[in-house]
Computed example of a mutant assay.
Amino acid sequence: MSPTAHSASDQKTTGLARVLGSATAGIAEISVFHPVDTISKRLMSNHTRVTSAHQLNQVIFKNAAMEPFFKRVFTLFPGLGYAACYKILQRVYKYGGQPFANEFLVKNFRDEFDSLFGPKNGKALMSATAGSLIGIGEVVLLPLDVLKIKRQTNPESFKGRGFLKIITDEGFGLYRGWGWTMARNAPGSFALFGANSFAKEYIFGLKDYTQATWTQNFVTSIFGASASLIVSAPLDVIKTRIQNRNFDNPQSGFTILKNMFKNEGITSFFKGLVPKLLTTGPKLVFSFAMAQSLIPAFDKLMKK
């Protein structure tokens, strides 16, 4: 088969460039967006209908709801240490790891994707599939995510215990909800990298995704982030509710699913979606666009 019959391959970047670019994006993201993430998690964890500004204030600021504004703002930074560790590792793994998975698929399955979907669609779908595979493996970081969410939404569950004490006490209990996490990550990451790649193919006509400008990365990241958040929203709500409960009061995802249907209705599976699109969406767009721009920039810098 001639080279033109194949989907085009992106220029390879070094592993170090992928780590540095992704880590820098993660650090920038956590510095700017941690309070926003706390608000989103507290809204998703809320089981009641919010019908007034007073109730919204109670949900977001909890026991500090009646404190002065600046004191309330500082309550949005719980679990920052866990969040920093988790987010930086997650971004390095996800943004830095997806190109490796994509290169594996290109090397071993490019002909199959091209013949089934055509060269342009095949390339975008390989990127999406690589993202999905990486998203499934992200479950290894689940304990840090669990501790971050509990600090944000249910700090009483720590009962004065430190990190090492919790690890010792809870063990594999910190992987509670791992199945739901994988179920959320697979389609979510597929949509993130897939929509991003399709936008690069069909909006900007890029042959090499690593040559995208900052503006192109920003625009295509909007498509990817929006698709990812919408697709993963129902499973994300279930995952968050599993993880934010007390350590000694676990509840299965199926029980939560049943209770949500019974007590809150179908719309409960999309609780927090609009705030998440308005808050987590920009966060994801910011870090994804930054990583896609910084990785080739670091690569060029190190090759000089």
Rank of each mutant, 00 (worst) to 15 (best):
residue 3 P to W: 05
residue 3 P to A: 12
residue 11 Q to F: 00
residue 14 T to S: 15
residue 14 T to R: 10
residue 18 R to T: 00
residue 20 L to D: 09
residue 26 G to M: 06
residue 29 E to H: 15
residue 33 F to P: 15
residue 37 D to Q: 15
residue 38 T to K: 11
residue 41 K to R: 15
residue 45 S to V: 01
residue 47 H to Y: 12
residue 49 R to V: 08
residue 53 A to K: 07
residue 55 Q to K: 12
residue 56 L to M: 09
residue 57 N to F: 03
residue 58 Q to D: 03
residue 58 Q to I: 04
residue 63 N to D: 15
residue 66 M to F: 13
residue 70 F to V: 03
residue 73 V to P: 05
residue 76 L to A: 01
residue 78 P to C: 10
residue 84 A to E: 07
residue 84 A to T: 13
residue 85 C to L: 12
residue 94 K to Y: 10
residue 94 K to R: 08
residue 94 K to A: 08
residue 97 G to W: 00
residue 98 Q to Y: 10
residue 101 A to I: 04
residue 103 E to C: 08
residue 104 F to I: 13
residue 104 F to T: 15
residue 104 F to P: 04
residue 106 V to W: 06
residue 106 V to A: 12
residue 112 E to W: 15
residue 113 F to P: 06
residue 114 D to Q: 13
residue 115 S to H: 13
residue 116 L to I: 14
residue 119 P to M: 05
residue 124 A to I: 05
residue 127 S to A: 09
residue 128 A to G: 14
residue 135 G to M: 00
residue 139 V to A: 07
residue 141 L to T: 07
residue 143 P to H: 06
residue 145 D to P: 02
residue 146 V to M: 02
residue 151 R to Y: 08
residue 151 R to L: 05
residue 153 T to G: 07
residue 153 T to Y: 07
residue 155 P to E: 08
residue 158 F to T: 02
residue 159 K to W: 05
residue 160 G to F: 12
residue 163 F to Y: 08
residue 164 L to S: 05
residue 166 I to R: 02
residue 167 I to D: 06
residue 175 Y to G: 05
residue 177 G to H: 03
residue 177 G to T: 03
residue 178 W to I: 00
residue 181 T to Q: 10
residue 182 M to N: 03
residue 196 N to V: 05
residue 197 S to W: 05
residue 197 S to T: 01
residue 201 E to R: 14
residue 202 Y to P: 01
residue 205 G to I: 08
residue 208 D to R: 11
residue 210 T to W: 06
residue 212 A to H: 10
residue 214 W to L: 09
residue 218 F to M: 07
residue 220 T to K: 04
residue 223 F to S: 05
residue 229 L to W: 10
residue 230 I to M: 14
residue 234 P to T: 04
residue 238 I to H: 09
residue 240 T to G: 09
residue 240 T to W: 11
residue 241 R to L: 02
residue 242 I to G: 14
residue 243 Q to Y: 07
residue 245 R to D: 04
residue 250 P to D: 02
residue 252 S to R: 13
residue 253 G to Y: 10
residue 254 F to C: 04
residue 255 T to D: 13
residue 257 L to T: 02
residue 258 K to I: 06
residue 259 N to D: 15
residue 262 K to D: 13
residue 264 E to N: 13
residue 264 E to M: 12
residue 269 F to W: 06
residue 276 K to P: 00
residue 277 L to A: 12
residue 282 P to A: 02
residue 283 K to Q: 14
residue 284 L to Y: 12
residue 289 A to H: 10
residue 298 F to T: 01
residue 303 K to Q: 09
